[in-house]
């Protein structure tokens, strides 16, 4: 049985697509057959972050409308085995993303024995975002340590708890987990930034991971490489930890402490 995980946040620009790419690549690298679906119809970007933008032939809307089949539409990643990308369409055909259509695509993927289906949600709480989360078994709520992001994450949690299929059918709820991104421990130390504990207190859901603020995130997107593949960087390792926790491994949180400054930098930094 495939596990469907939505990566969502409410607010835009907090790292949903970056996270979807890294979680999917990490799961595939761990040997799990994984598909990652871009639900941002009209504003396709997962293809760029995954570095397969020139290999897009068909898209999610083609697939839903029956203009292409799953095999034609899925893009196989060239770096990681078991990893497939399902791009969004660039036309603004909102009606195409019907509940029945999305369900059909997910069932096709399940029939193909995918272990994990990662749904990369668009920002906002409108139709696209609701379709991305509707069928989810688990949710990764991506949150920046910043007031509007935290508030929007709480809104999305409300929608997961009332508008998901699990909620509507009275099934066990969607398993929600928090991923804090763009975390800067030195600013937390000086009281300028909400701490991970603050955010966990406010949202009251379990913590999946903390991704430190890092230059590598921009540099990875420049090259179309999921951050998790940069194994020698903090952000890459933090994503790897998050993937391991998704798979049930217990790993301590890392990169929560600011790097100690030397005496010289303490005085003149």
């Amino acid at each position: 049985m495939s596990k469907i995980i939505v990566v969502t946040s409410g607010k835009g620009g907090v790292g949903k697509t970056t996270t979807s790419a890294s979680i999917a690549a990490g799961l595939a690298r761990a040997g799990k057959k994984t598909a990652v679906i871009d639900f941002d119809v009209g504003l396709r970007n997962l293809d760029l972050i995954m570095g397969c933008e020139r290999r897009v032939v068909y898209d999610l809307v083609n697939l839903i409308k029956g203009e292409s089949n799953l095999k034609q539409t899925l893009i196989r990643d060239k770096r990681v085995d078991n990893l497939y990308i399902l791009p969004a369409s660039q036309t603004r055909d909102k009606d195409a993303l019907s509940k029945e259509g999305v369900e059909k695509v997910l069932k096709d993927l399940m029939r193909d024995r995918f272990d994990y289906i990662i749904c990369d949600s668009p920002a906002g709480i409108e139709h696209g975002a609701r379709m991305a989360l509707y069928f989810a078994d688990e949710a990764i709520v991506v949150t920046n340590p910043e007031v509007s992001s935290v508030r929007d994450s709480d809104r999305i949690l409300g929608i997961l708890q009332s508008k998901s299929r699990r909620a509507e059918l009275g099934q066990p709820p969607v398993q929600e987990r928090l991923l804090v991104t763009r975390y800067d421990p030195s600013r937390v130390d000086t009281g300028q930034m909400l701490s991970v504990n603050d955010i966990v207190d406010l949202l009251a859901i379990p913590l999946l991971g903390v991704i430190p603020e890092s230059k590598i995130v921009l540099e990875s997107s420049n090259q179309g490489r999921p951050v998790v593949l940069e194994s020698d960087t903090n952000a890459g390792q933090a994503y790897d930890d998050a993937v391991a926790r998704l798979l049930g491994e217990k790993r301590p949180m890392r990169f929560l402490e600011a790097q100690k400054k030397g005496l010289f930098r303490r005085f003149f930094g």
């Binding site: 910043e146 935290v150 508030r151 000086t190 009281g191 406010l202």
Partner: peptide, 28 residues
Amino acid sequence: MGLIEFFLGKREDQTANIAKERLSVVIA
């Protein structure tokens, strides 16, 4: 932390606390 702040201690305005307080009200 610069030279002056090092001797005077941390800045008074810890804005993260304000953020947490405001968020806890609005979220509740």
